[in-house]
Each structure stands twice: as structure tokens, then as C-alpha cells.
Amino acid sequence: MAKEVLLEVKDLRTEFFSSKKSSVTAVADVSFDINKGEILGLVGESGCGKSVTSLSIMQLLKDTPGKITNGQIILDGVDLVKAPAEEIRKIRGGKMSMIFQEPMSALNPSMRIDKQMIETIRLHSDMTKEQALAHAAEMLKKVGIPDPPRVLKNYPHQLSGGMSQRVMIAMAMSNDPKLLIADEPTTALDVTIQAQILDLMKKIQKEENSSILLITHDLGVVAEMCSRVIVMYAGKIVEEAPVEVLFGNPSHPYTQGLIASVPKLGSGVKVLPSIPGSVPDLASMPEGCRFAPRCKYATDKCRTMNPDLFQIGENHRCRCWLMDK
């Protein structure tokens, strides 16, 4: 079956401006595709640009000093970077929706759940209030909320974190989006709730045949959920591979470090390996490869020249001079 591309990100560059002239580049030359019906993982440490990438796709950089300065983001043939605000508005919450890291603060505290859900539904359909309410209840049921009529009448502070995230998912999925962007959707939740929410997302994704861009720093989540993974470091993609390839044959030293630093039960290792150093400051990026200062294989070439994203296998790309054969 030929894969159909749903979202195409090309050479995306997002800069944060502290004044008109000075800026730091949070996301640099990022290109990737998401196919229809696929869960793509976007992994990296805090500050590597993964959230900025998602906000760039959603065009939600307003009210931040961030701005897309280059590239295209094409969803179903529409370039979101160039599209007029009104068109973007119709796509957001409709064709493309998003859930966030902190479900408790992502819901409006002074509005009841029913109002917030009806608002979302009616923005993208011609349903009456009654129809929208019925649809909201149906969505809540779908995300495993036991008593939808009661929860609909609640205010956000009356719900637990897990419940709130379920509501957020129900809300995000209520207009049958083709693409769901989930920015660390389980990071703020208890481990048991995490597993439930992930299962739920996977189930809904299968039922609706939608695509998910899953942003996380948790490799365990990636392994469980995704078919393909992108690893970001300091604003750039350093490796991209199908999930089995990434875990079986990580090629970039950073990816290798990430995977090695995941604790494994019964491995007998006393001290968990870690990557020395820390993520470089966006304002003072090292010359050459951005990972070079922390890389044990780094050569002089690495420290002076920026490596390309080399194609090293089928669907496998890696930004490392070691791969340049």
C-alpha cells in the first residue's frame, strides 16, 4: 500500500526574537513527513525545539516572541505558513488539533466542560447546541469517561489530571481531525494513568485512521506508540528511522546515548550511563556539529563543519559525519 503524505514540513526555521534585530534559532532546517494513519514520534531533551516545532505547525506562536522565518508546512495541500489567518483558524481544531502537557491548566477554569466542548464542536460544524452536547457526551464515552452527563456539568477543577486529559483528547478528537499533535500528553500524569491515556490515543487513532505527531522525551512511550521516530537535538533533526531500526540500530551518537541511558530491569548495570555535558545554549551554538562538544567520537571535522542529514538506509537518516561513507 502506497503511503499517502498528510503533513509535509520542509526546511522549517523558527526564530525567537528578543528585539527586532537579535534572535535565536529554536528550530533550524527541520524537514519531515507524516503519513496518513501513522504515529510519528518526535523525541529530544527539553529545549531541543520539539515543542516549538509543534507550535509552528499549529501556527500558535502568536503571543510568543517566536516567528517562522523560513520553510513550508503543507497539510493536505495547504501551506500553513502562507495561509491567511482565517483559513488557519478553520483548520485548527478541525482538520488538525492539539493536546498539551498540562491538562489541568489547558482547560478554561471558569467554564463548564460542556460549554468548552460545545464551543469546539460548533466552531467546525453546523450542529445545534443540543446536537453538539450529544456529540460531546458521545466523545467523552469514547475516551472512557464513565458518566459523561455528570462530567459535562463539571468545572475543570473538579476533575483529576487523567480525567482532564481524557476531556482534552475528547475535545481534540471531536471534529475528526486528520492530524492530532500531542505535546507530552502523559508527562504530567501518574504512570498508571499514562498507560491508559496512551492506549486510548492508540485506540482512537486506529478507529479514526488519523495521524498523530507524538512529542515526548520518554523513549518508553515512543517504543510503545510510534511506527517512526525523529530525534531532535538543539533545534535540528539528528536521526530519523522506523521505531525498530532506531532501537535496534541507533546510528547517531546522541541517539545511542539516549537509548543507553534508559534503565533496563535486570540488566545488572549499577551506574546508568549518561551523556556528559548539557544541551548548548541557543544563543551560542557550537560551530560544526551541535552535538560535537558532548560526543565521544567527535573529530576536528565535526567541530568545524556541520554534517548533513545522510540517508543511511531505507527511511533511515542520520546527521553525523561518521555516516558519511
Partner: peptide, 12 residues
């Protein structure tokens, strides 16, 4: 606040 971002994300 996050919920203002949510409101934008729903296309309001």
C-alpha cells in the same frame, strides 16, 4: 495561560 492557547488551538 495554557487555556488561552487551547482556545486558539480549537480554532476560536
Amino acid at each position: 495561560e495554557d487555556y488561552v492557547r487551547t482556545a486558539r488551538a480549537k480554532g476560536q
